[in-house]
Design a protein around this nucleic acid. Structure first.
Length: 557
RNA sequence: GCGCCUGUAGCUCAAUUAGGAUAGAGCAACGGACUUCUAAUCCGUAGGUUCCGUGUUCGAGUCACGGCAGGCGCGCCA
């Protein structure tokens, strides 16, 4: 078997052949067409794969599932890959794959390398993942951190599985919020100059505004004398400054974007006006009460939305349509947007706009990220950007480090609430799941150090005889290792990066258990080599999994 | 009022390609294992009306309908 997916395909084939044979003998009607599920059973005693085909056939041929399963098995040639196929009491058919098949697949993996094992899900499709996209009016908080982790890891997963991926950050550098930032900065600057003006309630309260004002105060000469111009100048200055900080925090978090796409660019190059013209040309936009409205209701169950306000200003929605039009025109097959879940109400109108532009709205996938509750001393820490009482990503990174932060963000499915326990993430103890995985890797590295001292080189692993891996724990570990590629595939198909985290925890659990029971390096050189090959593959899978997560795989701990 | 998400062990969460067999982990609790390649580990015990109800069927944590509870959204804001 080239890879573990092929084992499942073989099982499918065995079933199909048996069905054909039963059709030939008249036991099954010839025209019947079925797509049975072949799954990995929960219970180990139920074999490596099982199928429900007998249940699906039962009503059609008016026979009991048990009888159908029995006849199918009698007509089955399974000996090549299975040691037995059993009919369970209810009518399930359980396939017990030969241990040798798994061992040979492991050997193949060792010979050909990990990269040859990843399934090609994407087939070269181009996908653009847009995430974080936080307004440059304040530093990233912990919620953005979760979005950053999910987006970055999803990008890694998709890259592993045959997609061409571009990571993009959309910078909302136009509009009222930037203006408010300018006013806030200006007010702080006046304070520093000893000539204060009222600091209004809707201004940004955070201390970072004061820092920026202080920076400006040092370069007094470049500030325009007129207030309006000064505010505009400071808006630009402050948002650039904040943006630099965001990029720095992201880099510290291990997230590097391919592009930063600025909203103002869409205005400058005429994309927004062009988009509005197209919509109007198709009569998908109309004027009412002095404003321009988009006919959302034509495409989705949603109300019509304003594109141009009666004061002539364009809405965020207008430029966002232009942005997504722009993305599609850059020849991406799939657009993934990662948003905070509080924006979910925005999905219908954006989908509608894509359809209105004559594109397939199914090419847009929106992943919603639920809020993060930060726990400190077991109690939640409140947050709000306006009041300045948020916990920034930087603070969390400084406290728990990149590895723990990324791992914790991916311990939940993204659309579920996440409780982030700061104290737990910080602990250097067995309670911390990050270390559980990393420690397994360090242990394996340690074994290889000892092996090296005893004269076992990496090259000699080529001669290892996997047939000597006969322990039950070893078979389980092999299956666990090979399952990696299925998990990555599932993760890619469902856009659920957190599956990698769960998989790794499960896998290294098997290893820790094995380690405590079994000595790898022993007197029997053959067995030692075989076990080292097993651990080498395990090590590579852990490294690969952790690198997808963006978490380090330390050699010592 | 309408829409989306969530509800599983004391706590935090799983449950595989959208229905499969006896619902699983970790933490916390209790009892054990270091003369050994790393005890940041392992082994064992205990812990459940899967929020409630009705339905669909060979089979429901999973699907449908109706409730209950929590979160979020329903702007000419972004």
């Amino acid at each position: 078997m080239e890879n573990p997916r092929m084992v499942r395909q073989q099982v499918r084939k065995i079933i199909r052949v048996a069905c054909d044979r039963c059709k030939g003998s008249g036991f099954l009607p010839g025209e019947i067409e079925l797509n049975p599920i072949i799954e990995i059973p929960r219970e180990e005693e139920h074999g490596d794969y099982s199928t429900n085909i007998a249940f699906l056939l039962a009503p059609k041929v008016r026979k009991s599932p048990q009888e159908i399963a029995k006849v199918l098995v009698e007509n089955m040639d399974f000996a090549e890959i299975c040691e037995k196929v059993e009919v369970a009491a209810r009518g399930f058919m359980n396939f017990y794959v030969k241990d040798a098949v798994w061992r040979d697949t492991l050997k193949r993996m060792s010979d050909k390398g990990l990269d040859s094992m990843f399934p090609n899900v994407g087939e070269g499709k181009r996908v653009l993942i847009e995430f974080v996209s936080s307004n440059p009016t304040g530093p990233l908080h912990i919620g953005h951190g979760r979005g950053a982790a999910v987006g970055d890891v999803l990008a890694n997963v998709l890259m592993k599985t045959g997609y061409t991926v571009v990571k993009e950050y959309y910078v909302n550098d136009a509009g009222k919020q930037i203006e408010t930032l300018g006013q806030s900065t200006y007010a702080r600057w006046r304070e520093l100059e000893g000539d204060p003006i009222p600091f209004e309630e809707h201004f940004y309260q955070g201390d970072y505004v004061k820092d920026i004002a202080a920076l400006l105060a040092e370069r007094k000469s470049s500030i325009p004398p007129l207030r309006d111009e000064a505010v505009r100048f400071m808006a630009k200055f402050a948002s650039d400054e904040v943006m630099h900080g965001i990029e720095r925090d992201l880099a510290d978090f291990g997230v590097i974007f391919d592009n930063y796409y600025r909203e103002t660019k869409l205005y400058e190059n005429g994309d927004v006006d062009e988009t509005l013209k197209v919509l109007q040309g198709k009569d998908y936009a109309y004027e009412k009460d002095g404003a321009l409205w988009f006919r959302t209701g034509l495409f989705e169950r949603d109300e019509d939305r304003v594109l141009v306000k009666s004061d002539g200003e364009k809405t965020y929605f207008a430029s966002d349509i232009a942005y997504h039009k722009n993305k599609l025109e850059r020849d991406f097959d799939i657009l993934i947007d990662i948003w905070g879940s509080d924006h979910h109400g925005y999905i219908p109108r954006l989908r509608a706009s894509i359809e209105a532009l004559g594109k397939n709205k199914e090419s847009l996938k929106v992943l919603l990220i639920q809020f993060v509750t930060l726990l400190k001393d077991g109690k939640p820490v409140g947050m709000s950007t306006r009041s300045g009482q948020f916990t920034t990503l930087k603070e969390v990174l400084d406290e728990v480090g990149k590895n723990a932060a990324r791992f914790f963000f991916l311990m939940r499915k993204s659309d579920a609430h996440l409780e982030f326990d700061l104290d737990l993430a910080k602990k250097t103890s067995n309670e911390n799941p990050v270390y559980y995985v990393q420690y397994a890797h360090a242990r394996i590295e340690s074994i290889f150090r000892v092996a090296k001292d005893e004269g076992v080189s990496a090259a000699s692993l080529r001669d290892a005889d996997v047939g000597l891996l006969t322990l039950k724990d070893e078979t389980m570990l092999i299956k666990g290792i090979l399952n990696f590629f299925n998990v990555v595939e599932g993760s890619a198909r469902s856009f659920e990066p957190h599956r990698i985290t769960f998989y790794l925890l499960d896998l290294v659990g098997k290893f820790h258990s094995y380690y405590n029971k079994t000595r790898v390096i022993g007197d029997d050189r053959g067995v030692t080599l075989a076990r080292l090959l097993l651990l080498d593959m395990l090590r590579q899978v852990i490294q690969s999994g952790l690198s997808i997560l963006g978490v380090s795989a330390p050699e010592r701990m």
